[in-house]
Design a protein around this nucleic acid. Structure first.
Length: 316
DNA sequence: GACTGTCAAGACCGT
DNA sequence: ACGGTCTTGACAGTC
């Protein structure tokens, strides 16, 4: 089991902007920003290795506007050696990686341009991971998409574009793509339906499952999701762990039991995490902590798991 | 230096 | 049909 956190490390000051506005796009700005982003990523990975946090979600904003038509720059050539170096470091210390393209990647949209944009975005992620020379255990995690008034049709549209459009969704994407159950549209059972017809592994999100499920127990749900992974090629199953932000959520005007307030907790609730560990005892997976204070909670989780000093490392 | 509107991209929901 | 909301962090313009 590896513990990780997504994209941002609050212990390492950035110093430089990580992105910029489309309106001010220039090749020079892109190069400078990417250069800074790669240096920053290097620092984060070193921090992670030092601290035994060996699962990390790389930010989709590493190369700003990479999939936008405005970007004609071959960043994958220009930064090839830097990217390879990062990839070597990741492999050397056996760091598990993933990326999570954001809400705009929707493969089952009825609008063909939305699907095309989505695929361009997925390709950017693939080129990035491929240029780092990472194997197919480095995953790209997305949600199923919209419902558009008819869930079965919408799911079948997902399956169809995945299975029957090899010119759009090619092997480079398929070897990395995984789907995640969400908190209101596509739950675990829906993801299983898609998995059965596509073979796409499922990233189990514990918080989303709490919000939206079909009554499965945590452990059996987790086992179902984990069984969709081909351990030899996909690697150990990944899961997302988080809990809801307490505070004024229960007073929100749209509060209800299923959705709660939908936001991720500020910091890890050790009691809930303890309970989660107890209920999932015996299962092995790589766990991403989607919690706002990022590495801080991840370190706490490591401590609770007794993994903190599991490895001895050279100093940096 | 603090404050705040806005940002490439989508979809849902209530009115 | 339409505007607000989801959820999110940081840029970028304003004071």
């Amino acid at each position: 089991m590896k513990i990780g956190y997504p994209c941002i490390n609050n212990s390492i000051p950035r110093g430089t902007p990580s992105t910029f506005r489309l309106a001010s796009y220039s090749e020079g700005k892109l190069v400078q920003t990417v250069k800074n982003n790669l240096l920053h990523l290097n620092q984060i990975l070193k921090y992670n290795v030092k601290n035994n946090l060996l699962f990390f979600r790389i930010s989709s904003d590493l190369i700003p506007f990479a999939s936008h038509p405005i970007c004609k720059f071959a960043w994958y050539n220009f930064f090839k050696s830097e990217l390879l170096q990062i990839g070597d470091y990741i492999k050397k210390y056996n760091i598990r990686t993933s990326m999570h393209p954001d809400q705009f990647v929707i493969l089952n949209s009825p609008k063909h341009w939305t699907v095309e944009n989505s695929i361009r975005e997925l390709k950017y992620h693939c080129v990035l991971l491929d240029t780092m020379s990472l194997d197919e255990t480095a995953k790209l995690q997305i949600h199923v998409g919209g419902v558009y008034g008819n869930k079965l049709e919408a799911m079948d549209r997902f399956v169809k574009i995945y299975n029957n459009n090899a010119h759009l969704v090619d092997h480079l994407i398929k070897k990395r793509l995984v789907i995640e159950n969400d908190d209101r549209l596509y739950n675990l059972k829906d993801c299983i339906y898609i998995n059965q017809q596509t073979g796409i592994p499922i990233v189990f999100d514990s918080f989303h499952h709490e919000c939206y499920n079909n009554g499965e127990s945590l452990k059996s749900a987790l086992e179902m999701a984990m069984s969709t992974w081909n351990m030899s090629s996909d690697g150990l199953p990944m899961i997302d762990y988080s809990s809801q932000n307490l505070g004024n959520g229960t007073h929100h005007k749209n509060y209800n039991k299923k959705r709660r307030n939908g936001k991720h907790a500020q910091t890890i609730d050790t009691k809930l995490f303890e309970k989660f560990l107890k209920e999932t005892k015996g299962l092995d997976f790589d766990m991403m902590l989607e919690i706002k204070d990022k590495e801080k909670s991840a370190l706490r989780a490591l401590q609770m798991l007794g993994l903190k000093s599991a490895i001895n490392l050279p100093n940096f």
